[in-house]
Amino acid sequence: MRPLPVGEHGLLIELDDAEEVEALHAELLRRAAADALPWAGGGAPSERRGEIVPAARTVFLDGLADPRGLIAELATWDIPPLTAAGRPTVEIPVRYDGPDLADVAALWGSTPDEVVRRHSGTAFHVAFCGFAPGFGYLTGLPEPLHVPRRDTPRTKVPVGSVGLAGPYTGVYPRSSPGGWQLIGTTDAVLWDPRREPAALLAPGTRVRFVPVETAR
């Protein structure tokens, strides 16, 4: 664990792999829920709010009263290894009808049906979010199934598109430009600011994709 100060109130904690990121993130959420993180600012503890942002190899904390004090404290933490128990699981129905399904099958040295079987048979989890509100970077596919982005990004990827890029699977929460390989579509609403919670997928959420019949 390598903590790096970020400005006056931030700490970027580098870790060796995604599992360590997830374990530390879970520990930070436990401590935040117990109001045991030293956020900056006055007022009632419930009104003090910092940021806990997991990413590929790091967890970023912002809004800390004393980042350097936390560096010393971190070394004394006993962080339990991660278990799947107690993590929310979300099932996302997918029509595997994406325009890049055949290309992904070719990259996998496989067939479209086999892509559907492998993808829907994988236990994913949300490693982190970014790019757009509600966009989760889902890990779970083994390395031989990692695919590059498309050479030319699309100027418009439809809302609900399920795509692959590098180690990640993601679902576009709204229409936007994008370079991921699109293998399917879902009607699940990934992001609705009027809903509580607004984001269907948050860091740590378990995800399974459930194939549904393509309407043709």
Partner: peptide, 9 residues
């Protein structure tokens, strides 16, 4: 709206 960076907000 601080506090939502982990959701990409």
């Amino acid at each position: 709206r601080p506090g939502h960076a982990h959701l990409g907000v």
